[in-house]
Design a protein around this nucleic acid. Structure first.
Lengths: 121, 121
DNA sequence: GGGTTATATAACCATATGGTTATGACGATG
DNA sequence: CATCGTCATAACCATATGGTTATATAACCC
C-alpha cells in the first residue's frame, strides 16, 4: 500500500456516513438509491461518499440494469488491518504491563488469562 | 468507541505526517522538537499534528523538565484494529473464493495453504 | 419516441484542514 | 534576574470537505 492509498482509505473511514455505508454493504450489494435510503441527506451527497469510498479502494461498482451496484471490497480493509496490526506489539506490551501490575497488587503468581490477540477470531 | 472517537482516530491516521509521527514514537517517547526534526515543516505545524493525534487518543503527553514528552497510546490502535477486524470474515471469504477458483483451475483437491488469519501474529 | 427510474454532474456555500509567520509563555540555568 | 530553549497560540491563507439545489445523462418500459 502506498502512502496515498493509506491517506484515502483512512480518510474515507473517518466519516460516520461512509462507515455506515460499508456496514450496509456488508449485508449485500446495493444500488445507490438503496444505499441512500436510510440517510437524512440528498442522493448527490451519497454519490459523493460512494466516490470517496471507491477511490479509497473500499468498494467497487458495476452496472446491473438501471442500477450501479455497490460492492464491499474487503482486500483494502485487510490491508488496513495489517497496517494497524503492525503496532500490535505495543498494545500487547501494555496489556502485559497491566497484567504485571494486577499480579503485584493481588500477590498472585499465576499466568494471566487476558486475551492479547484481538479477540475477533 | 463512540462514532466521534472513530472519526477522530481514522481522521488522524489519514495524514502521512501523523502516521510518520506514530512510527517515530513507536521507537520511544520524544519531545516536540525531536518529533519535528525530520519533517520539512515548521514547529507549529507539528504541534497541530500532535494535538490532532492527542485528541484522537493515539498519543498522550506529559511534561518532563522543559520538554513535553509525546508517548504512543496503543489502546486506541487496538480499538481501531478491532473495528476493522469486524470485517475480517469478508476478506477471509474472498480468499476462500480465490482458493476455490485456484483449485478449480489447477484441478487439485488438496487443502489450501493460504493464511487467512491476517498474518501478523 | 416519451415517460420514468436511477444516477451523475455542475455550481455553489460553509466549515474544516494543513500550512505559514510572528509572538507569547513556561521552565531551566548562568 | 536575564536569557535561552522548548513549546503553544494567534492571525492568516489556500485548498479540501461535506452538504445543498438544479439539471443532465443513461437505461428501461409502454
Amino acid at each position: 500500500m502506498t502512502g496515498n492509498e493509506l491517506d484515502r482509505a483512512f480518510g474515507a473511514l473517518s466519516d460516520p456516513t461512509r462507515r455506515a455505508i460499508l456496514a450496509r454493504l456488508a449485508e449485500g450489494d446495493a444500488g445507490v438509491m438503496d444505499v441512500a435510503a436510510p440517510f437524512p441527506m440528498s442522493q448527490p451527497a451519497i454519490t459523493k461518499h460512494l466516490n470517496v469510498l471507491e477511490e479509497a479502494g473500499l468498494i467497487s461498482r458495476h452496472r446491473q440494469a438501471r442500477q450501479r451496484l455497490c460492492h464491499l471490497e474487503p482486500v483494502r480493509l485487510k490491508q488496513l488491518s495489517d497496517w494497524v496490526g503492525s503496532y500490535r506489539e505495543f498494545w500487547e506490551e501494555s496489556f502485559e504491563r497491566l497484567d504485571e501490575l494486577l499480579e503485584e497488587l493481588q500477590g498472585t503468581k499465576e499466568t494471566s488469562t487476558r486475551n492479547t490477540t484481538g479477540g475477533t477470531t
